[in-house]
């Protein structure tokens, strides 16, 4: 390692071979500054500026117009629906994600790699397709739709369809966070607990769960952010009934199309705030519990 580095240095920087103690990065200052500037400019132009623009547009009409836009009945209904959908989809995915990653990381069974692959399916399928499959399953011309309808249950173009589409789109988030960590941690702690006479559930709640709690929390936060922000799949199954089946992202589009730019950006900024809040919570937790997080990774 040291030798090849030295050779490399001699080749690139004639006269520098005499230096014995060097930092691990040997690029010139110019290169380093260049790299930092490129990343900062890129972030500023493609991330920061648009986010700032959203807030500037949202507050252009003053705080009163902002509040009016958010408390307008259709907007309030969209916010309520978005929160409801997240409140159902996230716990479902939490239970599913835990179960799936527990199964994959701690047990050996036939079809394990198939399950592992299937979890990624929503990432690789376009959200529009995720919506359309529910239309095909529960639409008027499907097998299930007319049966459910005879019992008075409306799935698509109603809240259940939106919840289903959101669950579908967001289900990899928790599992994808947990599986690598659980695999890394192995089964040693669980075996120790069992040998001390713990029951299965005790092992789960006292050993497995505490070991993965940070990854789980991170997964839940990401899952929640996406559940609130999902547009494509929800748009297909929503039916766009105002005050009833419009989520916040759909409502933003509607307001924009109505030339109601201030209100559109007000609701958009609320969505952006939710996302920022998620990121801040995550960063604070990572900073506050850095030691503990590092400890769970050490196995």
């Amino acid at each position: 390692m040291a030798m090849s580095d030295a050779a490399f240095t001699r080749e690139r920087l004639p006269g520098a071979a005499a230096v014995h103690f060097r930092p691990v990065t040997i690029e010139r200052r110019r290169v380093r500054v260049g790299l930092i500037v490129v990343s900062l400019v890129f972030l500023a132009v493609f991330l920061l500026l648009p986010v700032v623009a959203v807030f500037v547009e949202a507050l252009r009409g003053g705080p009163k117009a902002f509040m009016d836009a958010i408390f307008e009945p259709d907007a309030a209904a969209a916010i309520r629906l978005t929160l409801l959908v997240a409140a159902i989809a996230v716990p479902c995915n939490l239970v599913f994600g835990l179960a799936a990653s527990w199964a994959i990381a701690k047990f050996d069974f036939r079809g394990k790699s198939l399950l592992n692959t299937l979890i990624d399916l929503p990432f690789s399928v376009s959200p529009v397709i995720s919506g359309l499959i529910y239309i095909l399953m529960f639409g008027s011309h499907s097998l299930l739709g007319p049966i459910l309808k005879s019992y008075g249950i409306q799935v698509i173009f109603a809240v259940p369809g939106i919840v289903l589409a959101t669950i579908f789109v967001t289900f990899p988030f928790v599992a994808r966070e947990l599986i690598p960590l659980m695999e890394e941690q192995g089964q040693g702690d669980e075996e120790a607990a069992l040998s001390l006479g713990a029951s299965g559930w005790q092992v789960f709640f006292r050993v497995t769960l505490p070991n993965v709690k940070w990854a789980l929390l991170y997964g839940v936060l990401l899952c929640n952010a996406r559940a609130m922000g999902e547009f494509g799949a929800v748009s297909v199954v929503s039916g766009h009934i105002r005050g009833l089946t419009n989520t916040m992202p759909l409502h933003v589009e509607i307001l924009y199309n109505e030339y109601n730019f201030a209100a559109a950006f007000a609701v958009a900024s609320l969505l952006a705030l939710l996302a920022l809040f998620t990121l801040i919570v995550k960063s604070v937790l990572e900073w506050r519990y850095a030691d503990e997080i590092a400890a769970t990774r050490r196995h």
Binding site: G139, S140, G145, Q154, I156, G239, H240, I241, G243
Partner: peptide, 20 residues
């Protein structure tokens, strides 16, 4: 009265697919 708006052809499709 609740409203749903969208492209005319797409809205017809939603009615066919079961929007009430």
């Amino acid at each position: 009265i609740q409203q749903s708006h969208g492209g005319s052809g797409k809205q017809a499709r939603s009615v066919i697919d079961g929007i009430e």
